[in-house]
Write a protein that binds this DNA or RNA. Sequence first.
DNA 1: CACGATATCTGACTAAAGTCAGATATATGC
DNA 2: GCATATATCTGACTTTAGTCAGATATCGTG
Lengths: 290, 290
Amino acid sequence: MLDPVSRVRRFNRAVTSAVGALDTSFLGRGRPLGAARVLNAIGHGRSDVGDIRDYLGLDSGLMSRLLRSLEDEELIETTAHDDDARRRIAKLTPAGKREFNAYEAISNRQAKDFLAHHSQREALLAAMDLIASALGRDATALHEMDPRSDEARYCLGEYYAELARRFKQGFDVKLSRDPDAKDMVRPRGSFIVAMSDGLPLGCVGLKGTSAEYAEIKRLWVAPAARGLGLGRRLMDAAEHAARELGIALLRLDTNSALAEAGQLYRRSGWTEIPRFNDDPYPDLFFEKRL
Amino acid sequence: MLDPVSRVRRFNRAVTSAVGALDTSFLGRGRPLGAARVLNAIGHGRSDVGDIRDYLGLDSGLMSRLLRSLEDEELIETTAHDDDARRRIAKLTPAGKREFNAYEAISNRQAKDFLAHHSQREALLAAMDLIASALGRDATALHEMDPRSDEARYCLGEYYAELARRFKQGFDVKLSRDPDAKDMVRPRGSFIVAMSDGLPLGCVGLKGTSAEYAEIKRLWVAPAARGLGLGRRLMDAAEHAARELGIALLRLDTNSALAEAGQLYRRSGWTEIPRFNDDPYPDLFFEKRL
DNA sequence: CACGATATCTGACTAAAGTCAGATATATGC
DNA sequence: GCATATATCTGACTTTAGTCAGATATCGTG
């Protein structure tokens, strides 16, 4: 019925009016939108004035005036940057924090109302994740993190759940050779998480071993972010970390049920080798010399 | 990792910046956004000035001025309404049409670029349909249409494809007792399509027969619109049409593989009856007295 | 045809957003 | 230490959006 372009445009129309409603709800606190946006940016952790200006796309004159108006309301305080006194750092005062929380409550209520009015919650949330990831692809950043961090554990949990779904015989972490977290922390190894606006979208582990090689483990990309080249980026980052650690040979094991993964390895310079461990789950083994 | 509310808010953030980019791209034609919006509304077929004002949520004074500025540019012409000279009708001049097409080209290009940059096209489009339908739920309107119209045929095609997927033995329309289109047109019957901003989201047929009952056929709801109560609305509309046509007894057949449908019928006053036809596909039969 | 209701228009205003040319203070490289 | 670059601020503007109180013309009804 509708061609792809029309479908995208229908989505744009639907979303434009929803966004408009969201904006006007912010007007209820007696502050123009510009000032409200700056206050919220500061509340969300942006403190560097130049950073806020870039983020909101404001002229420096306008930005300066908006900061002043928030200062007059005693919602924020600005100080000079420690290392560079030209730059200014903005922080919420206690009153500012209260006001910020009030804006947060408005946003949360709106999100809650939206969810409450729709029975397809999970499908809707998955669709939203997918679109948010697609729109924010360029904003997806890779961070080296401790494998025991909340973000990493979330990724690993999703990874295990997916293996359980996709392996005919299911998957039980305890039966697999679960890498010790310490092996995936510098200087032995590394663990990298892809984050997009607060949501972890993928991970990969570089596990140092006592043998002459290190292993790549736990490569996972969220369903919402597949097809965006994130797996490749994660692998590149893991290889980069390996080089930094002076590792010359990488190995990994995988299962032929994970077809996309096998393709990715083959296309990025890995060569298949015979089984090199006795883990019951993998049936495909690769190595790559750096 | 993220609770549902945070996921909705992440989506809102992603989409807000995308919408902002779309808006600013409209500024490139040297016309303020307000005037561009009015021009586009007229281009998309809205001609009644009051209608445009409601649609865009504008004050009558502002609206009047925007119309004037477009007239000064010779992009539109306004005339009095034939039946009511107080109302004004706005139409694009040839120059206005050219300008409108330029805006359309911007929107189309943007949609195309978005699609071109993402390899998960179908998943992305399905997610967009789902969200647009959810956001526009209140805007989904039921229209009585000819079952041979493009919209109706699109729905039926999707319906047959879904049956083929869900029936173990597949589905072939030719083997089914395909209702004659004429039986689903007044005064014998009716065919109703649910439309949301140009996209058909569901359908239902009321098929007149020579027996003492009429039949409900081809109830279908697009995956993007499930869980929004559209099936119920379509059934209500079909029953309403039946009452208008003086029909006292309705029957329908379905298959137990379509669990949601069976549930809907049971919950809305239908009672199971023995097989009343020899169609090979259905295995469940219902009737309802009006 | 008088009356109130309705649709649009006009004039006079305000608020918000955005622009631009300097001014000021600080940092950096030679 | 000096020239140049950078970050922010200030003042003087313009444009856009929006509001509101009437004015004007037309409609529907009795």
